[in-house]
Structure formats: C-alpha cells, structure tokens
Computed example of a mutant assay.
Amino acid sequence: MFTMTIDNFRLVIITGMSGAGKSQVIRAMEDLGYFCVDNLPPMLIPKFAELCAQSGGKVSKIALVVDIRGGEFFDTLAQVLEGMEKQGHLYEILFLEASDATIIRRYKETRRRHPMAPHGRISEGINRERDRLEQIRGRATHIIDTSGLSTAELKGKITLLFAEERELERMTVTVVSFGFKYGMPLDADMVMDVRFLPNPFYVESLRRKSGQEAVVGEYIWKWPVTQQFMEKLAGLIDFLVPHYVKEGKSQLIIAIGCTGGLHRSVFIAEKMFEYLKAKGFKVNVEHRDIKHNVIE
C-alpha cells in the first residue's frame, strides 16, 4: 500500500497476495471516506492523483487497488514508485499477505481461479505470485498477515493505520423510532420493543400528539416502569457500545419500536439520543413513522 501526501492530499495503493483480503481492505477504506478504485494500471496513478489533487479539496483521500491482475502493467509499479520518490513525494507501502494454506482455503471456498494459475493448481499460482511480488514486498513499511484475522480485526488494523484522529474516537450511532405495524427497520443492529410501557393513546388529550411533545413525555416518564426500563437500557448501551467500537463498527443503528411509532418509541428514542449525546457520541435520531401521524 503506497501513501502520498501533498497539501493534505492522501493517496493509498493497496497491493499484495491474491486472496489476502484486498477487497475487505478497500471496503474498510471506503468506510473511512476514501475514494476507491479497483485494478488501476500503475502508469495511470500519477495522472489520476494529479486530477484528484486539483479537485479543490472535494477528493482528498484516494485508495487504489493495484495487483497482478493488471498483468504486465503491474510490473511498472516499482518504476512508478521510484518516479514519485524523485519528485519528493513521501509514501508508505502496506503489503497484504497470508499463508499458502489460508489462501488455498479461501479460493476453494469461493470456487474462484487463482489469477496466476487459471488452469493449474492454486499452490502453483501462489508460488509464482510470491516470486513476482518479492520486489514490492521488499519496499514495504507495513506488512499485514491476514491468515488469522477476522474481517473485524483486519478492519481495525486498517482503521488504526489510515483513519484520521477524529475517526478513531467514536462511531456514528443512529437511534430510530418506528411502529411495528409498519415493519421493523431492516438495517437495525439492535431492536427494543417498548409496547409494554403505558400508552398515551388511551388518554384522549394525548392521542393525537407525538412523543416529541412535552405533555406526552411527562405522561410516559411518570410511570416507574419507564424509568426502570431507561436505567436498564442505559446500562446495556454502556456495556455494548465500547465493544462495537473495538470491533471496528463504523455505524450502530438502535431501533425503538412501539405499535404505531407515534408516542412511546418516539419519546424513548429522544431520551436515548440525549443520553448518548451527553456521553460524547456522534449520534443522530430519526422518527421513521411519525410522518404517518398514525394514532396508536
């Protein structure tokens, strides 16, 4: 992986063994805000970088995958790196590799052909590729062996190497209120059912108001069961969120559901938003079904 910095412009080239996890790395880079391109010929890197650097700051972080799929074009990578060194550009190389056994297992699981042995044994392709990559590997300032790494662990390593300082601090948490009658949010990581809480629907003066209104919130909050639930939910969040951050998760979606998504779920979602915000998390709140103005 090659990194060039020019006036806050960063270019990253991802390279290494086939089957070592370059696809997972490029997805991790996308999560970090990098503009990603796969299988770009090395000779085009300087021109592409120049175009992006002249974008007026719109594209300041780029990740390009360059590997042996480029055929003869790949062999010009070393020459390109030398040219950039002569121009005074700083860079790093992060080389992704894995054991022969791991690469063979991954190729058998995906039933794909190795690019260096399309009609032969995978082991033969691995040996050819290691020989061909030896020069680039020798330039590496970082080498990651992905043999024993999970996807989350690999993402964590990439985050530590290439995320900006503020991106390392907190992931984004989105709290979504919804009504079960409209279905659960498909992208939710956690779902809390609050239909057991006292329902403002049965109070005539509150029936047509939402959980965002103070009078509705006062009604829901006055019941001991609500306060006990919030205390336990806060404890659960305090336990889980640091583990999600450690896993390298970039976004956590917490869904709070009641019958119609108008009263109880809205109020609890707002309370959870306030709690997480006070903790210093980057948090958003959305009320998916309040727009329906549905009466529970």
Score class of each variant (00 low, 15 high):
G211M: 04
D193E: 12
K222F: 00
T146H: 04
L160A: 15
I158C: 14
G156H: 10
E164I: 04
P224K: 05
K222Q: 11
T226W: 01
T172Q: 13
T151I: 15
P198T: 10
G156I: 07
Q228V: 14
K232C: 08
T159I: 15
I158M: 13
F178A: 05
K222V: 00
F180S: 13
E164M: 12
R207Y: 05
M192S: 14
V191M: 08
P198I: 02
M192V: 15
Y202T: 11
E218L: 01
K157M: 15
F229L: 13
F180A: 04
Q227K: 13
R166H: 15
L161C: 05
E204V: 06
F180L: 09
Q212P: 00
V191E: 07
V191F: 07
V175N: 06
G179Q: 05
D193V: 09
S150L: 06
E169Y: 09
G211H: 03
V175F: 07
S210E: 02
V173Y: 02
I220P: 02
D145S: 07
T146I: 08
V194H: 02
S177A: 11
L154E: 03
N199S: 13
Q227I: 11
L161S: 13
L168C: 09
G183Q: 06
M230H: 05
S205C: 10
E167R: 04
S205R: 14
V216M: 06
I158E: 06
E164R: 11
R207C: 12
G183S: 01
V215Y: 01
D193R: 02
G183L: 07
S147H: 01
G148Y: 06
D187S: 12
E231C: 13
I220N: 04
S177P: 06
M230R: 00
F196N: 07
S147W: 01
K232A: 14
S150G: 15
M230W: 02
L186I: 08
V194L: 05
G148Q: 09
F229R: 03
K209N: 04
P200I: 04
M230Q: 14
I158Q: 11
Q228L: 14
M171Q: 13
D189L: 08
A163Q: 04
V225C: 12
S150T: 15
A188V: 06
S150N: 05
R195Y: 05
A163H: 08
T226P: 05
R207L: 07
E153V: 03
V194G: 08
A188S: 15
Y182W: 09
A152F: 10
A214H: 07
R195V: 12
K222T: 09
A214T: 12
S150A: 13
L161K: 11
S150I: 01
K157Y: 11
V215I: 07
Q227H: 08
I144T: 08
Y202I: 01
Y219P: 06
T146F: 03
V216F: 03
W223K: 03
F180Q: 09
T159K: 14
L160G: 12
T151A: 14
L233M: 15
V175I: 14
D193G: 14
E204K: 12
T226H: 05
F162P: 10
G156A: 10
T159L: 13
R207P: 03
M190K: 00
